[in-house]
Amino acid sequence: MSDEETKREILLPGDEIKQEGLKPGKGVFKKDGKIYAAKLGVKTIKKGYVNVAAQSGRYDPQKGDKVIGTVTDLDASYWTVDVNAPFPAVLHVNDVPWRVDYGDTASYIEVGDALLVKITDVDEQKRMQITIDEEGLRKLDVGQIVEIPPSQVPRIIGRGGSMISMLKKYTGCKIFVGQNGRIWIDGDLEGQYLAIKAINMIEENAQALGLTEAVKNYLKEETGKDFDE
């Protein structure tokens, strides 16, 4: 990773990025041949592109993101799903794994149901197409959902998924972190409770030193298990 992503530094809107031979990526803008940061965030360099990864703000839907949504409305041939974005997404009957007759949408998915969906397209008007007809995507019938700021999703996942795999291991729960900041947790009640406590701990201490260790110690103490040995 070191050749792709080297130094990290905080940038503010309008800060010039002084680096030769880089192309403008996400979160930056180019003016008069110079590259500037467009939002508050961390500079990252990947494959010759310079990006600014946001440190705050709302979820900005991207094509290919797997997110957790809740159904807010339905019609004869589609459902409207809230995925925590500025606008609701549309789930068409063609994008579900069942054959749904016209007007029969309610017998498959109802208002209030939670879904694990993938964003298949975002157009320039920010209208979203989503699908549930793919491996791993489904209706979430059990478990519970907690919400965190979308900018903290990478922290819950950890470097190379270290934090999330640790959470799964110690709590014995199934956990899925949606890119939109919604986390689905399923397992025995005690495990769920512990997972939520750990997630809250990560959220509140996102800036604390040695967070991974602290969370690990907390989980060890609560469960009495130790996977390090």
Binding site: R8, E9, I10, L12, L40, V42, Q55, R155, G158, R159, G160, S162, A206, Q207, A208, L209, G210, L211, T212, E213
Partner: peptide, 23 residues
């Protein structure tokens, strides 16, 4: 203005960097 924003985010950033080194 910039100082105010840096003050909030730089502390978070330092911590994040350290976390990554651990991982």
């Amino acid at each position: 203005q910039k100082e105010a924003l840096r003050e909030k985010y730089s502390t978070e950033l330092q911590a994040e960097k350290l976390n990554e080194e651990e991982m």
